[in-house]
Structure formats: C-alpha cells, structure tokens
C-alpha cells in the first residue's frame, strides 16, 4: 500500500554547487533568456552552442547524469516524434523513399542542387535531406527548452522559485496586481502538498480497513469509491486552511505593507559571472545568426 512513494515534489535535488548557490532571480532570467534565444536561432549548428553550454551547466550542478536523464525521460518520446514527422514531411531532396507497395530508393548524399521533389504523392514515404536537418533542429530546440527548465527546477527549491517570481514581478504592484499575495498563495500551496498527500494516504488506509474497494472495474463504481476518501480530504483541507489563516492573523500577517524576508536573495559574483558569460555567448550567436548566415 505505498502507491504514493514515488511522488517527488517538483524535482528539486538539494546540493551545494555553483548553480545551486546562484541567486534564483538570475537563474529565472537566464533560463528564460536561453529559451527565448533558442527561438531566435534557426540553424542547427548555432543551436548546438546553447546545448553544449547546458551540458556544461549540468556538469556544474554535480547532480548525477542519470538523475537528470530521469527528468528528461518523459519528454524523449515527444522529441523523437517531432524528429520523425519533420523528417518525413519536409519537401526536399529524398534520401530514402518508399512507394507503395514495394518500391524503395535510397541515396545517402542526394545532389542538393537538383530540383526538390514534393513529399505528398500517392502512398509514398520520403525522408528528405532537408527533413532530417529540420527534424534535428526542432528536436534540439525542444531538448534545450526541456533541459534548461529542468536544470532550473533541479537546482532551485520551489520556495526559491516563488521568492524569485515575487521579486521579479514587483513592478506589478504599480498596476495593482497583488504580487505578494499571489506568491504567498503559491508558497502555501507548495508547502501543503506533502501534508495533503500524508492525509490522503491515511484516509485511504482507514477506509480500506473498513472494506473500501478502489479496484472496481466499472468507471462509475470506481468514481463512487473515492467519495469516502475525497470528502474527509476536503474537510481536512478546509480545516487546515482555516487554522492556518487564524494562526497567520494571530501573528499579525497583513498588518504592514512591506514584509521583510527571512531569506534575502542576494546577487553575488556567481550571478554576475554567469550573466557576463550568457551576454557574450548570445551576442556572438546573434551576430552569426543575423549578419553572417543571412536568413534565407
């Protein structure tokens, strides 16, 4: 009865590395910049620069490679599918083609100066040179996005992310967005996930002891069998919320406008060095992108 044992919240892997110690605000901005940058680049060999950079960062985090891969595993199928469909659905010079029912042709290095062949034709599957190139490009782009975000969440605790977002969104207060309240809600929600899971596990066990059966075949019966779990869970959640609200008010939450923080975020040399590296890297990438290899 340990169906909840594999749930990890976020996927934060505590550590003490350069990346862990960085200011979460800078990590947020840098991850955002990497993602935006990889939409600006449209050559796969340019994209490989941020990719290699991220590989370097993942070495810096000192998190084991297999643990990082575990987080990526769930998106790998999408990456493969992206590659596959792009490679067969792009007009260009065919490398491999199959025409129904049994006609094959294969040419590893097609003559790129010859006229292109349209892909859609009868029952035909054509893998083109351009398709492979484009598929590889799209796959790499996806991989960078996923790797950047997972390196960010692996090295930044949910609380740090909340703090960083609150700080970065400070300007929102000017136009009456309740930034602080939203951040508080987010951190309370994060804080109570494990508590709720614990309650859930306890209630499930208690109802199992009373003969509850969650392995019904029919969907309706199955949904019904969760009522004895969900009602106590909600009752419990509301009670907890109520108690927490009272406890916060008892400690004068909301009396002053500008709360100070226990954990101040502070930019250090690590953040400035990282920023400098990113700026130099992206400036040169954009130079190549927009001046050397003109968009064709």
């Amino acid at each position: 009865m340990n169906f909840l044992k594999n749930i990890t919240i976020g996927q934060y892997a505590p550590g003490n590395s350069f990346v862990h110690k960085m200011d979460p605000r800078f990590k947020t901005l840098i991850s955002g910049a990497i993602i935006i940058q990889c939409f600006l680049l449209d050559k796969w060999f340019l994209l490989s620069v941020p990719f290699i950079f991220l590989i370097f960062v993942s070495l810096l985090t000192k998190i084991s490679f297999s643990y990082i891969m575990k987080g990526l595993k769930s998106v790998l199928p999408f990456i493969f599918i992206t590659f596959f469909f792009n490679s067969i659905l792009t007009t260009g010079h065919p490398i491999f083609s199959y025409i129904f029912p049994n006609e094959f042709s294969f040419c590893l290095f097609p003559d790129l100066t010859s006229p292109v062949i349209p892909v859609y034709d009868k029952f035909m599957i054509t893998v083109t040179h351009e398709g492979i190139e484009f598929g590889f490009f799209m796959a790499l782009r996806l991989l960078i996005i996923v790797l950047a975000t997972s390196l960010f969440t692996l090295t930044t605790s949910p609380m740090e992310i909340t703090d960083a977002l609150e700080d970065l969104m400070k300007w929102g207060k000017v136009i009456k967005i309740p930034v602080h309240e939203m951040a508080m809600m987010m951190s309370i929600a994060i804080r109570f996930i494990p508590t709720l899971i614990e309650h859930l596990e306890k209630i499930v066990k208690a109802q199992l002891s009373r003969g509850a059966d969650f392995e019904n075949k029919s969907i309706i019966k199955k949904a019904k069998s969760f009522v004895p779990v969900l009602i106590p869970l909600f009752v419990n959640a509301f009670r907890t919320a109520d108690e927490l609200a009272v406890a916060m008010e008892a400690r004068c939450y909301g009396v002053t406008d500008n709360r100070t923080k226990l954990r101040e975020m502070k930019a250090t040399w690590r953040d400035f060095v990282s920023c400098a590296v990113i700026v130099i890297l992206f400036a040169s990438l954009n130079y190549f992108q927009f001046f050397t290899f003109k968009v064709s």
């Binding site: 309650h199 002891s209 003969g211 509850a212 004895p228 419990n236």
Partner: peptide, 29 residues
C-alpha cells in the same frame, strides 16, 4: 477483504475518516 473483516483497525484520530451525511450511514459503510 476477508482479513479486514476479521481485524478491525481504528486509526489514530479516526474521526477524520467520517464522510457520510448521517451517523447511521457512516457506521453502515
């Protein structure tokens, strides 16, 4: 199921497992 009918287990703070509309229905669960 047979085992759980024989061994009634009352958890700590069992009142958190109540869910029915009436006391009668809850005990009848």
């Amino acid at each position: 199921k047979d085992l759980r009918k024989k061994v009634g287990l009352v958890f700590q703070y069992p009142e958190y497992q109540l869910f029915e509309e009436t006391v009668e229905d809850d005990i009848a669960f």
